[in-house]
Design a protein around this nucleic acid. Structure first.
Lengths: 261, 261
DNA sequence: TTTGTTCATTCAATATATAGAATATCATTC
DNA sequence: GAATGATATTCTATATATTGAATGAACAAA
């Protein structure tokens, strides 16, 4: 079995669930529906066990099964679950309106992201720019925590020791990587200005702005992110976007009950 | 145990998965995080078993656990799964652009729905009208198949026997219910015009239009839906919306490989 | 048509996940 | 501060989910 999966399965008192989750993740990653054999091989499960897992998932409408091709794929049940999560997530529902507003006003792609420590962030709300380019990201997308503009915010306000930051920093992939020293200067600047900016480091030709949102005093729990073509943003005026972004982030922090610093 | 859950659990060779799915659905429905006891009671599980299920789900990041309050809630992992599904769903990704277009052009809320037989439909893509009212629906929302405008399409093109239709029809809830005979006349009309319309039946004061999309020859697999205030739509001109909706639906059917009738 | 190959599925022995009682933990009330 | 009640958690015997081999089905090549 997959070493990592083997571990979770052994540690758990409900291994079937670990297996089921692994299957769901695999199907989520896969670009095409997969057959039993492929799934079992990939995850290192014995085919018969894998079959029972799949059948249970099909019965729960989390996985669909094409009887003709004998292939399995994610089913829409996962959407229904996601909806339940979104419905109860205050940040996601409260952020949507401001995101739409900003996206429309400045013709940028706006993201509301949730921060999971120093490890990763997840886009939980998205508003696409109407006209022009589509820098498209979908709800549920996952990024390393320290990448791009949001990364500067997390580094600036997360209270992590430099050692840990550097270790994580070294694992990042950028189009045009800054050195750690450069990056630290930018982080310091973010600490002063209150927002992070990434001008073409993460993706060449694209500028990303991020402003932290706090659910409670301390490290930011979320962030608002604006993404646009560097050239277009310069034309619109970066200043105005920065200002609006920070204002909305502060407002949200207030609404979520996090102290407005 | 819950009678229905008991059944699935007994029939399955992987009961832990049925239980896990039930827990996830319960947490998805719930408005607030739930404690172990509440979950176990609601689902008729023994607390210890329920605890193991929850721990496994927490380990998989599908459920979050607040150590202070000892409450469980859905975690963002479900979003990541949903994203995997959306990514590979041709209809959802291809429908987004037309939905945005129509929503903007006619100031209506647009839905792309997937049809699951005669039972239910799920919204898989949404585009909100910018200004004015927000008739808001989220991705993942689930509706009975035969309700509203989409229901007329499914009845018209699904090829279900009248007996079965009537049985399902009797279970529907409308603001202003039509009689079965009235409804059948509307269905017949849909069969001629190629689109379904619901003028205030489902929700008073709201008009819903739906045009079927086919992935393959036969019963529609999806539909495009336009939702707007009856008064506003009348002002805009229903004709134009109908026309545009049907055009886009036909186009999508072509792109998805379903025969253009 | 027959044969070989690949894949999905069933089956029976056994390792183990589950149920239910026992225990621990935490508020709440007296 | 002790007692009560409600809740979460651990523990262990047993019912059963898992395994790996055996069977079956589907397809391609000869």
């Amino acid at each position: 079995m997959n070493p990592e999966l083997a571990q979770t399965v052994k540690d758990s008192k409900a291994p079937a669930i670990s297996r089921a989750a692994a299957v769901l993740r695999l199907l989520g990653k896969s670009d095409a529906p997969l057959g039993l054999g492929a799934i079992a091989r990939e995850l290192g499960l014995v085919p018969s066990t894998c079959l029972y897992v799949l059948r249970a998932l099909v019965a729960e409408e989390l996985v669909s099964f094409d009887a003709d091709t004998k292939r399995y794929a994610l089913a829409s049940g996962v959407l229904t679950l996601a909806r339940g999560w979104l419905r109860r997530d205050h940040f996601a529902s409260m952020a949507q309106a401001p995101l739409d507003r900003l996206a429309r006003a400045f013709d940028v792609t706006m993201l509301g992201v949730e921060i999971f420590g120093i490890d990763h962030i997840i886009a939980v709300a998205v508003s696409q720019a109407g006209g022009g380019f589509q820098l498209s990201t979908q709800v549920g997308s996952r990024f390393p925590a320290l990448i791009s503009a949001t990364g500067r915010c997390i580094a600036a306000f997360g209270g992590y020791p430099d050692k840990q930051l550097e270790a994580k920093f070294d694992t990042l992939r950028w189009d045009d990587p800054p050195t750690f020293a450069e990056w630290q200067r930018q982080v310091a600047r973010t600490r002063e200005t209150g927002f992070g900016i990434d001008e073409g480091n993460y993706i060449a030709g694209v500028t990303v702005l991020a402003a932290p949102v706090r659910k409670a005093r301390g490290a930011p729990s979320h962030a608002l992110v604006a993404i646009g073509l560097t050239s277009a943003l310069r034309r619109t005026g970066l200043e105005a976007v920065q200002q609006a972004l920070c204002d909305e982030a502060r407002l949200l922090t207030g609404q979520l009950g996090g102290e407005e610093v």
